[in-house]
């Protein structure tokens, strides 16, 4: 489903984010990319979402080589993904409902179906009663759950989460980890970039360790 073949990523200024990374993530897997800050975890997720292009090597998603992907096809690739951002990227001038509904608006769903799916997503993350609230009125943990609801509302095949428990206490981090586990059980491929031990211990995932841009434990 996701494949890295000898991938290098260098940023302007000579910063090396990834070096010769090769791996394979199969459909329905639950994978954690672990490593210290600056190890290249976020870069890997950005490469999968085609936010960045590799400097060398090849990244493919669903057998689609992202190098050859036309700009016109990019939005449709991203609609197969659910993205959970470290900084949440919530729209604070919109309600909780409207934030979650955005991917469905992009997909062109009708009002009724949108309402049904948003309610289901909010219910799943425990925010159903807050749908009319402003995201600014939510706690950090609730904002993260809102971000997760937005990531899953359009039923993506792959869920990518970048430090999803970065600012949360262990209890809230555990709750978030449980959410990811439940999505994975429902068949979603989940890739989490984190250095949070709580998440790693709770999920017992397949673990990929990155150190200074190199993969320590390569995929089979």
């Amino acid at each position: 489903m996701i494949r890295f073949e000898h991938v290098d990523k260098r940023y302007p200024g000579g910063i090396i984010a990834l070096q010769d990374v090769s791996l394979r993530i199969e459909r329905g897997e639950l994978v954690v990319i672990a490593g210290a800050s600056g190890a290249g975890k976020s870069t890997m997720l950005k490469l999968i979402a085609a936010v960045e292009q590799p400097s060398a090597g090849r990244v493919s998603v669903n057998d689609e080589d992202l190098r050859g992907l036309r700009a016109r096809a990019l939005p449709y690739l991203r609609r197969q993904l659910g993205l959970v951002f470290q900084d949440h990227k919530l729209l604070f001038d919109r309600s909780v409902f409207d934030n979650v509904a955005l991917p469905l608006a992009i997909a062109g769903l009708g009002r009724k179906e949108t309402s049904r799916r948003v309610d289901a997503a909010l219910d799943k993350v425990g925010l159903l009663g807050r749908s009319h609230a402003s995201p600014i009125a939510l706690s950090g943990g609730e904002q993260q759950r809102l971000c997760i609801a937005r990531a899953i509302v359009h039923r993506p095949a792959i869920l990518l989460a970048d430090e999803p428990t970065g600012n949360l206490d262990p209890d809230h981090a555990g709750a978030i980890a449980t959410l990811f586990e439940s999505f994975n059980r429902a068949g979603v491929t989940v890739v989490i970039a984190t250095h949070d031990r709580v998440v790693i211990e709770r999920l017992r995932p397949r673990r990929l360790d990155l150190q200074a841009g190199r993969l320590l434990e390569a995929a089979p």
């Binding site: 979402a49 936010v51 939005p75 991203r78 993904l81 993205l83 990227k89 955005l102 991917p103 992009i106």
Partner: peptide
């Protein structure tokens, strides 16, 4: 611009 950036990341077309 935040909304535009987010929309692009989650699959919005330029037309949208």
């Amino acid at each position: 611009r935040d909304e535009i950036e987010l929309s692009r990341l989650i699959g919005a077309t330029p037309g949208f």
